[in-house]
Amino acid sequence: MATNTSSNSPTAIPNPTTRYRRTGQRGINTEMLSWLFMRASGLLLVILVFGHLFVNLWLGLGVKGIDFAFVAGKWSSPFWQIWDLMMLWLGLIHGGNGVRTIINDYARGSTSRLVLKGLLYVAVVVTIVLGTLVIFTFDPCPAGAEPSLLPAICEG
């Protein structure tokens, strides 16, 4: 036995190279992916969020033009559907991952970590699913609805 890694004997000197022998964890690693994602999604969010604010609050009538019909009009176009979908997914996954980092920072006990992260993941998934559902199934004038509840654009 050339290697002397056992620590059974208190006098045994461990082979000095063993502590640096790595476990063979190679290539892509989730922490690196998470780090890259935060940068990539952050960059996209700048464009998406400011584009969103510009179109909604500046163009045309500006902030006064926003009403139910305005939103209905935007979502009738696949372009804005995809735009808002990306904003929803990227924003929530980016924000969720950011809050995950913060929970890792502040939650000391493993139970509180588990609970907080559980709540976070549930909230993120529920919001993404509901939001996606709304973007794709949104119908401003559902058939058979009480006419007095419908907006003016549905007439005729």
Binding site: Y20, R22, Q25, R26, N29, E31, M32, S34, W35
Partner: peptide, 13 residues
């Protein structure tokens, strides 16, 4: 080898 060490969970990320 050093990059691999620092690419771990408690590394540079």
């Amino acid at each position: 080898q050093r990059l691999e060490i620092l690419n771990s969970k408690e590394g540079v990320w």
